[in-house]
Simulated assay, not measured.
Amino acid sequence: MSTPTGASPWKRFWKKGGWWRALVLAAVYFVLYDLLSLAFTPLALQLDDPTGAAAVVVYYVLPLVVGGLLLVRPRKTLGWRTPAEVFEEQLQSLEEAGVATTG
C-alpha cells in the first residue's frame, strides 16, 4: 500500500492499518479524558450543593464535552465521515436505485 509523500505523519500512521493502532488511540483518549476532566476540580470545590444543577454540569456535562471534542479531532484531521454522512449516502443510493414495492 503506497502512502502519499505529502501526507502528515498522523495520516501515514493510520493508513498503515493494524488493530493495535485503535487500541493506542483508545488508551490515549482515556488518559486525556481523565486528565482533562481533572481540570474541572476547582469548579467542583466551589459548589455549594453537590446535587444541584451546577454540579450536574461540572461533574457530567463538561467532561462529556471535552470527550466529544477529543473524538472529533482525529475524525476531522483524517477526513473520516460522520455516521450521519454515511447514512445520508446510503439513503441516497436507495433512492437512486429504487426500492422494490409490492402491489
Rank of each mutant, 00 (worst) to 15 (best):
W19A: 13
E95S: 07
S2A: 04
R75N: 08
V58G: 04
E95R: 09
V28A: 05
Y59V: 00
L38Y: 06
R12W: 02
E89K: 02
D34W: 11
T41S: 07
D48G: 04
W20A: 14
L71P: 07
V57E: 00
V65W: 01
Q92N: 08
R21K: 14
V86H: 11
G79T: 07
L69E: 08
P83Q: 05
D49I: 00
P42W: 07
W14M: 05
G79M: 05
K16I: 03
G98K: 02
K76I: 08
T102H: 13
F87H: 12
T77K: 15
R12I: 01
L25M: 14
L45G: 08
V72A: 11
T82G: 08
E88T: 08
E85Q: 12
V66F: 02
E85V: 07
T101C: 03
Y60H: 03
L43V: 06
T82H: 06
A55S: 09
Y29V: 07
G68V: 11
L47M: 13
D48E: 08
V31R: 15
R21A: 13
L23S: 15
Q92C: 05
P63I: 00
L78D: 02
V28D: 06
M1P: 06
K11Q: 10
P42R: 06
V56W: 02
A44G: 11
F87A: 14
L32I: 12
A27F: 02
Q46G: 10
F30G: 15
L35A: 15
T82N: 09
K76Q: 05
R81N: 12
P42T: 10
L32F: 09
G17T: 02
L78F: 08
V72R: 11
V72H: 10
G17D: 01
V31E: 13
A84L: 08
V66G: 06
A53N: 00
T101M: 03
A26H: 10
G67K: 01
A22N: 13
G79W: 10
R12P: 01
T77S: 11
V72F: 12
G103F: 11
A100W: 04
